[in-house]
Design a protein around this nucleic acid. Structure first.
Length: 619
RNA sequence: GGCUCCGUAGCUCAGCCGGAUAGAGCAGCUGACUUCUAAUCAGCAGGUCGCAGGUUCGAGUCCUGCCGGAGUCACCA
């Protein structure tokens, strides 16, 4: 539903309803939609509600309203009444005025600061492996929604929680200790990124563990277990399902990893030193990837520092009777009133869990920032977790419980299925970015528009184009939808893509060079030019920008803005094709069209920035 | 099994707090570069909006049931 008619049009129609029908327009919720297709007018007023109240045929009402409007206002050029639809056509001069309002509004589409603060958590990497395609989706969404909220008056602070402890990092630590020959990232040639190095040892652990498990399956002990629990199943199937138990109970390798975890928790100095060394390597590597994706964080939480924090709040809740202690000592909460189950908040040995930690972090943030809203950009597999977390926080009387929101997004899958890091079927984030930039370079070199530019400048442009292709491909689909990503076909550079939008900006820069002006320069307006066809279509698109931004923010959905920018670029490309600018028939036309270009460029740049993309001046 | 999400053109997706003949892109076919960048534009072709009911002047959109796919329902994170 598009409610993007300008305010003055609403007022005009409301006034007409009041005077012509003596009905209070505020009770009606009259809809006025802008139309981009031909043949339905510029705007459509839906008169069904009015017809219902007056108990008259919709078409008659529409005609009466149209008569009144066209004789009482100079903006309306003509109208058509079709059934309950009143199609209004605006006079070209009205469109010109509408456009000038847009062109002269600084920060068009943005809203003034409301003073409200939103905290956005995203990225949240693990320190045992490099970032992959799933993280890219997360980060791209996180960056975009942060900036979009900001444009709508929110103060925004970004945070991440680094998963730097637990059994996974211990696996990497153990494998590196045993097989890493003491070599760090810079001991290789060429040097390896730290996150890659540690990730390789994580994979190596899995391989060694698998080998160990294979061998063990031949052992007397394994055969005995199979006979006892195998239930006559196929041995292969049985041992596949037994893998976890093997890890817990039999594996010498796993035992060492778990010993390491225990030693870490006990604060063992040498284990802590090893942990710190590997973590530092990984974080440095990940930081590089973050920079390339424009991920910035105002506050970083390390799980190793906060994972115990929630306990106090759980115990407090226990005292207040919100939670209960089971016979075995575990603290649980009954969420059946919320349609959820019982959740354990503290283990019987008193240690905390993932939820416990998130409760603690929420309170910590509350103290530090007093946010009005908290957004968690996290994959949809954790939807249940966040439902429970939010319900528990509400129960505890958490201050901004109403402002909690899980921006959940679907998994990114490969054509063959889910990505599994242990199986090596992941698309590495850095590799993917290199690949799209390579494609951009290839494409660009093929057309040779950048010849003569210094190499460094060219590379920067390839980067900007490639990253836009990647980011746009992710942002244009609704977050909830799971994405199937085909690395072979990779990313399009033609059609509904980031580069398509960038190309509109590049074309405008080309016009500017030809005209000998800059985008910033004021060149004056024409008061006589009457815009037509493609020009009006472009103005209509421009006037939808505020709506797109607002909707994007309210729905926490960058895809709305992404698809808007495509529409805008499309209208521009069409206009550019049909209307000469530098060679315009008259001075008035040239000025007007250049203003149109300039404003379009401004909005494209602004919108692309809000989505986390840059625009080049050439491509 | 409970809950959540998804099902729209060959493929990838918009549209979903009800509106007119359901929109794009890719792939396919036809045209447009001595002109401001053809990463573009114009056109053709492609649809029982998963199925069945219901509400409504009007349903891809809302309600109910069913079918298919995914996720989740851990004292893992």
């Amino acid at each position: 539903m598009k409610e993007s008619a300008p305010a003055w049009l609403y007022e005009m129609v409301h006034r007409a309803v009041e005077q012509r029908f003596h009905t209070d327009p505020k009770k009606l919720k009259l809809r006025i939609a802008i139309n981009h297709e031909e043949g339905k007018g510029d705007f459509t007023v839906y008169v069904f509600p009015l017809a219902g109240i007056l108990r008259q045929p919709p078409e008659e009402i529409a005609r009466a309203l149209g008569d009144y409007l066209s004789s009482h206002s100079e903006e309306i050029e003509k109208y058509e009444a079709v059934k309950g639809f009143l199609n209004l056509y605006l006079h070209p001069a009205a469109w010109r005025a509408q456009f000038y309002t847009i062109a002269q509004t600084p920060q068009y589409g943005h809203r003034p600061e409301s003073g409200k603060l939103a905290l956005v958590e995203y990225a949240s990497p693990n320190t045992n492996k490099p970032l992959h395609l799933g993280h890219i989706r997360n980060i791209v969404l996180g960056v975009a929604i942060s900036r979009i909220l900001q444009s709508q008056g929110w103060r925004v602070r970004t945070t991440q929680v680094v998963n730097d402890r637990g059994i996974a990092i211990c696996k990497s630590m153990l494998a590196w200790q045993r097989w890493g020959q003491g070599k760090g990232p810079n001991d290789y040639r060429p040097p390896i990124k730290g996150d890659k190095l540690v990730g390789d040892f994580y994979v190596l652990f899995s391989q060694k563990f698998d080998e160990e498990y294979e061998q063990w399956q031949q052992s007397e002990e394994a055969q005995r277990i199979y006979r006892k629990y195998g239930d006559g199943k196929d041995p292969k199937a049985f041992f596949r399902s037994y893998k976890n138990t093997y890890f817990q109970q039999h594996s010498p390798l796993a035992r060492q990893a778990m010993d390491m975890l225990r030693a870490w928790e006990a604060g063992d100095l040498s284990v802590r030193a090893l942990w710190q060394k590997l973590n530092a390597w990984v974080l440095e590597g990940i930081e590089q990837t973050f920079r390339r994706l424009d991920a910035r964080f105002d506050k970083v939480y390390y799980e190793s520092e906060v994972y115990q924090l929630g306990k106090a709040y759980v115990l407090q809740g226990l005292k207040e009777g919100l939670f209960e202690r089971q016979d075995d000592g575990a603290v649980v909460v009954d969420l059946s009133a919320e349609g959820l189950d019982r959740r354990v908040l503290l283990r019987k040995d008193g240690t905390s869990l993932y939820v416990t930690q998130d409760i603690g972090i929420a309170y910590l943030r509350q103290e530090e920032f007093q946010p009005d809203a908290m957004l968690y950009v996290v994959a949809d597999e954790q939807e249940y977790h966040f439902q429970a977390l939010f319900a528990i926080l509400k129960l505890l009387g958490f201050p901004s419980a109403e402002g909690l929101y899980h921006l959940s997004y679907g998994m990114v899958e490969l054509p063959h299925g889910r990505m599994k890091s242990r199986e090596g079927t992941v698309v590495d984030a850095d590799d993917l970015m290199d690949e799209v930039v390579r494609l951009a370079r290839q494409e660009s070199e093929g057309r040779g528009e950048l010849e003569g530019l210094p190499e460094e400048e060219k590379e920067r442009i390839y980067e900007v184009i490639g990253m836009a292709a990647l980011k746009y491909a992710i942002l244009r689909v609704g977050a909830k939808k799971k994405m199937i990503f085909n690395p072979e076909e990779s990313i399009d550079l033609q059609g509904q893509t980031g580069p398509y939008i960038q190309n509109a900006y590049v074309r405008i820069c080309g016009v500017a060079r030809k005209l000998g002006v800059t985008l910033e320069e004021e060149v004056g307006y024409s008061d006589t030019y009457a815009p037509e066809g493609v020009e009006i279509a472009l103005i209509k698109q421009l006037s939808e920008y505020p709506r797109a931004l607002q909707q994007s923010a309210e729905e926490y959905n960058p895809a709305v803005l992404a698809s808007y920018l495509y529409q805008l670029a499309r209208s521009f490309h069409r206009f550019y094709h049909e209307q000469p600018i530098v060679q315009a028939e008259t001075e008035a036309a040239r000025r007007f069209r250049w203003q149109l270009c300039r404003t379009t460029a401004r909005i494209i740049k602004d919108g692309m920035y809000l989505l986390g993309m840059e625009v080049p001046e050439r491509m």
